[in-house]
Amino acid sequence: MLSAHGLRKCFGDLVAVDDVSLTVARGETYGLLGPNGAGKTTTISMLCGLVTPDAGEVALEGERIHPRATAPKRRLGYVPQEIALYPDLTARENLRFFGRLQGLGRDRLRARIQQVLEVTGLTDRADDRVSQFSGGMQRRLNIGVGLLHEPELLILDEPTVGVDPQSRNAILASVDALAAEGLAVLYTTHYMEEAERLCDRIAIMESGRIVAEGSRRDLVGTIDEQGRIRLEVAGAADEVATAVAEVGGVQSAVVDQGAVVCLVDRAAVRLPAILMAVGDAGAQVTGVEVREPDLEDVFLHLTGRALRD
């Protein structure tokens, strides 16, 4: 339903998005996973027709999307990364305003506002100003506005950033429910677990490029044979990582949150040599964890960097 080809966007010398192509099928949940500054928001801005790409194009159900196109934008629900609401208007007034912009008639608008307030759990607070809402409530309303006109494709830009775990779960559950109803979703995040939980297909984005794409199984499959060893060390983690990377069978070793994370071909076989290397580097191992690789490891493997900031 949504297809983008060869998207490119530069800001001065910086290439924010470079040759990005993707498709989202009807009813599919597609994840765009990448760290801060990867180019997710810039990509979404082009997909929603907020900015003109320097190269490439976007089509929704065959209709081209660009800043001056109006018709295809009706099918699209966009939830910006930042809270994009008027704090001095009430929840209901915000919904009414954005609903009118979508061209909803009076009766349909009234009914939809009621439904969205229920879905977002804000019925009781409908007539309070948004400035008096908690961060989580504002997040929920921010998403609600995108759902108001019952779009066919919902584009969510990091909807759970800065949200407490409880609200976060609620948001994930409601996206899940919407997808189950057949809504196509494009979901942007830098949390691996969210992409793993929600998305049918995931694109991993780094420095403006999509470096891998596929289902979770496909992606993890690319490092199938491998294992992941996480070492808690007392000592200079950087030096340990460098030393461990030299060990035979170790494909990569990086420091993540003070620990050294390495991808190896066969964990059990390589572990003794790795522990030796740590000792030789003058550090002590305080904890070892060996497990199946996940998307985090895929990212680590592809880019040599950790996904988290």
Binding site: S45, C48, L50, R68, K73, L76, Y78, F98, G103
Partner: peptide, 13 residues
């Protein structure tokens, strides 16, 4: 405030 992004994403000239 970021609301301009919403206005631009809406189906209006």
């Amino acid at each position: 405030a970021g609301t301009l992004r919403r206005l631009l994403a809406a189906p209006l000239p």
